[in-house]
Write a protein that binds this DNA or RNA. Structure first.
Length: 276
DNA sequence: TTCGTCCTGGTA
DNA sequence: TACCAGGACGAA
């Protein structure tokens, strides 16, 4: 599941696209492209130059010459891999963008949930309007986070997963962050103490930063832009460790389904606080 | 706020 | 063979 650290890793790897000119684009699965038929997409991106590559939330954002932006959301099983043209196609390859000079950006996606979208730079505002702040931005201070939490209801795990509230965090890093902050995933937001809010803020930034340092978490699906696995799966404390001993206190890690998602936690380290 | 939908490979 | 994984979004 590519989340902020995985998408950031890919976006950094794709810096080498800057300056390349698109020769053509081919979509083997039309559904992977939003709003445009494959032929129209091909015509719309041809001969445009890559000006900048970045990330916003879980989107890879590729600025093209001529007021166009290509956004890529990998959803669950999407991969974006840069290869030499002529290399064997990726497994589950859906879209290939060829560049002048012999390289090719492949979008592969087993479950076909991921999407490429071509839009104007003005239309990026629509994307921005649906996204909460970046947890690693300098502007995401403890004070801002505290104010955000005061306006939000529900439990802490669903808040972390809500992209309009905070962007970039998915199921893996929500569970890991809550463990690091020693907060129970079902804890209601109003019940969080000042100390817990501060721990949560610090844990968010540390967990995500460490995961970027490890080039993301790979289970079966995620690969970076070079087609290589990340290393963060060896550093997870609770995610997919159901029944295994907590690495802090040896209590078996529990898993519960909440709103259709698996939630992993240590019932002792993350015991609910009595006060509220 | 929760549920269904899109999807299908991997696993039990 | 059946079921699980789940990000985002729209509907109930």
């Amino acid at each position: 599941m590519p989340e902020l650290p995985e998408v950031e890793t890919i976006a950094r790897d794709l810096q080498r696209l800057v300056g390349l000119v698109i020769e053509d684009a081919r979509a083997d699965w039309p559904g992977s492209i939003s709003d445009l038929e494959p032929a129209a997409f091909d015509a719309a991106v041809r001969h445009r130059q890559i000006e900048r590559v970045g990330r916003r939330a879980k989107n890879i954002v590729i600025w093209l010459s001529g007021d166009a932006v290509l956004t890529v959301h990998l959803r669950m099983t999407g991969r974006l891999i840069l290869r030499e043209s002529g290399a064997a196609a990726e497994r589950f390859q859906r879209v290939a963008i060829r560049f002048r000079g012999g390289r090719e950006l492949r979008f592969a996606d087993a479950r076909k949930f991921g999407r490429l979208a071509l839009k104007s730079t003005a239309a990026l505002a629509d994307l921005e309007a649906r996204l909460g702040p970046e947890p690693l931005a300098d502007t995401f201070t403890l004070e801002i986070f505290r104010a955000m939490l005061q306006r939000k209801r529900g439990n802490v795990k669903s808040a972390l997963l809500d992209q309009r509230f905070l962007s970039g965090v998915g199921n893996i890093y929500a569970d890991e962050t809550l463990f690091a902050a020693r907060i129970h995933p079902s804890a209601s937001l109003p019940s969080l103490s000042e100390v817990e809010i501060a721990r949560l803020h610090a844990a968010l930034r540390r967990v995500l930063t460490d995961a970027i340092g490890n080039r993301g978490t790979s289970f079966s699906d995620y690969l970076d832009a070079e087609g290589l696995r990340g290393g963060n799966q060896d550093h997870l404390m609770v995610y997919r460790r159901t029944g295994q001993p907590c690495l802090v206190c040896a209590t078996p890690i529990e898993r519960r389904a909440s709103s259709g998602r698996g939630t992993h936690f240590c019932p002792r380290c993350q015991a609910p606080t009595r006060a509220s």
